[in-house]
Amino acid sequence: MNCQGVEQQLMDEGTIGLEAAVLQHVHQCPECRKLYDEVATLEQLNQSLRGAARAPSDFSSKVVSASFVSWIGWRAAWGLIVVLLALVTLSDSSTFWGAQDLKAFWNDADSSLESQRSESISGAESASRSESDRDSSIPYVEVKVEGRSGAPVVVRIPAQIEVLTRDLHPEVVLRQASY
């Protein structure tokens, strides 16, 4: 074993579990002995760095709560993005119920004012009717989407969304959600 080999071993593996040949060389060679001592000192200091900091006692409970809250917020944010994207896509290719009426209202205010307004009112009544016709156990809000071509589509969105938090974590309680 030469000095280069010893240096390689000490630098790669440290002082623990060295081969007998390496140890024998270290005892005989002052330069390698010096290197051995320095590496050993460094190892002792590293030991101290291992316990330099510990997590605070409430770390895990805080992390678990924060993770669930963050996860719910993250899911909600993605849900909102999906809904917004869907709305943008729909509005791009279609005209929302009432939007065309409003446009005509402003463009042709003098002649068709009353008729447009009555259309809007009848539209509102129809929405109100559809709300009253809804399944009493699952309330819906209906949005009528009129395309430039094809038949209008009615999208039913649940008016009330129930989020079950008991399966997520006992510390996370969603008391009320509103819009």
């Binding site: 291992r50 316990g51 330099a52 900091a53 510990r54 997590a55 770390f59 895990s60 992390v63 678990v64």
Partner: peptide, 15 residues
Amino acid sequence: LVERYQDKLVNYIYN
């Protein structure tokens, strides 16, 4: 998992 790694991780980041 958190309790298993919290000290090692905080110590690592602290260093």
